[in-house]
Amino acid sequence: MSSSRATRGPTARTPNDLWQAARAQLRARGLWPLPDEAFQGVEGRLAGALPPVEASPRFREALAANLDLLAQHRRSGVIVKAEAGSRRGALVGLGIASLAAAAALVTLVVYLSRGVSRHPAQTG
């Protein structure tokens, strides 16, 4: 056994050694996933860099009171909806304005067409 090892020499590599070396090369090039241990250092640093942020007591209490009020309204059958926002109002306004503009345009066209049809009779 020892003689056979001697004939292979000190630089002889087993298939496992070759696989380890090949995998290391692939990992260095991002072609093979890194072991979980590779990320422990990064994860350790991240854990301390993203601390939780607490809400202010004033905000917490105010929101709790508002939620309680909403809950009581819902309980009593009053439906409280969140503010619809300006977008819906703008859309409704735009729709009404479009209808008004269309009506004005139709009126103008009808008025002008009548004026044109009367004009030859007045001159003749």
């Binding site: 993203l50 939780p52 709790a64 909403l70 809950a71």
Partner: peptide, 23 residues
């Protein structure tokens, strides 16, 4: 069953949600 009982859930999660939103 009763929205007024939502307060317990609120108290439990308000800080975590706030922190998440703040980030």
């Amino acid at each position: 069953q009763d929205p007024r009982a939502f307060g317990a859930l609120y108290e439990r999660y308000v800080d975590r949600i706030y922190s998440y939103v703040y980030h």
